[in-house]
Simulated scan of single mutants.
Amino acid sequence: MEFVKEFATFLHQKGIIKFGDFTLASGKKSSYYVDLRLVPSYPQEFRKMVKYLENEIAQNIGLDKFDSIVSVPTGGLVIASALAIETVKPLIYVRSKPKDYGTSKSVEGKIHDGMQVVMIDDVATTGGSVVNAIKSLKEVNISVKDAYVIVNRMEGADEALNELDVKMHSILNILQITEALHEQNLVDDEILEKVKNQIAK
């Protein structure tokens, strides 16, 4: 768990996670905001994160148990690309909507019937974008059993993926991050309570 504490501290120090009052893309109010798109700007930490993710996948499911890595633009795709290079695995990605020119397909990359893939994303809130991607993959007979995210906001993604028979794994969740920061007196009791209340909703 040393990585979790270190990574949480890094996220806080660099302002990648901010506490306050925010409105998310979905229109929901949040007591914090996490923007993992900033992580690749810090190559040492970015590489550590990708290596940690690689080890988790290797231990949990085995790198030989799936054909390709899949992601959704844009946040998750940067992480998935780095992971594909480290693991020497093919990479495919799912557009949020099919392109309206050329071949107009929603799944990009080399695919074949019955292939097994592992889904990668940066942050999971309700799981909406990943759920849509999984449905697009199933339409072309691609099987997803596991999805990995860096940060789980714990607001319904696990359950949403579970309904599609996909197991969600996260490197860390918002409660672990906030508690690690609280232990180091980097955030106060009030912030910790706000985050706990938001999860409870």
Score class of each variant (00 low, 15 high):
Gln176Gly: 07
Phe19Leu: 04
Glu163Lys: 15
Ile177Asp: 00
Tyr148Cys: 10
Pro90Lys: 14
Ala58Gln: 14
Gly114Lys: 10
Val118Met: 01
Lys194Trp: 04
Tyr148Asp: 05
Ala133Ser: 12
Ile85Phe: 12
Leu175Trp: 08
Thr74Gln: 08
Leu77Trp: 03
Pro40Cys: 08
Val166Gln: 06
Val117Lys: 00
Ile111Arg: 03
Pro40Arg: 07
Pro98Cys: 05
Glu163Met: 09
Ala180Thr: 05
Thr126Asp: 09
Arg153Thr: 03
Thr74Glu: 08
Asp122Tyr: 12
Met1His: 13
Asn55Met: 09
Ala58Trp: 09
Ile150Thr: 05
Leu24Asn: 11
Glu54Pro: 00
Gln13Asp: 14
Asn162Ile: 05
Ile17Pro: 00
Leu192Gly: 06
Lys145Arg: 15
Glu183Gly: 15
Val70Thr: 11
Ser81Phe: 04
Ser170Tyr: 09
Glu163Gln: 15
Lys48Ala: 12
Lys196Met: 11
Ser104Gly: 12
Tyr101Asp: 02
Tyr52Ala: 10
Ile174Glu: 01
Glu155Trp: 04
Glu2Tyr: 08
Leu161Ala: 06
Phe66Leu: 07
Val195Ser: 02
Ile57Met: 13
Asn60Ile: 11
Gln44Pro: 00
Tyr52Arg: 15
Asn55Gly: 12
Leu63Tyr: 06
Leu38Glu: 14
Thr103Ser: 13
Asp21Asn: 13
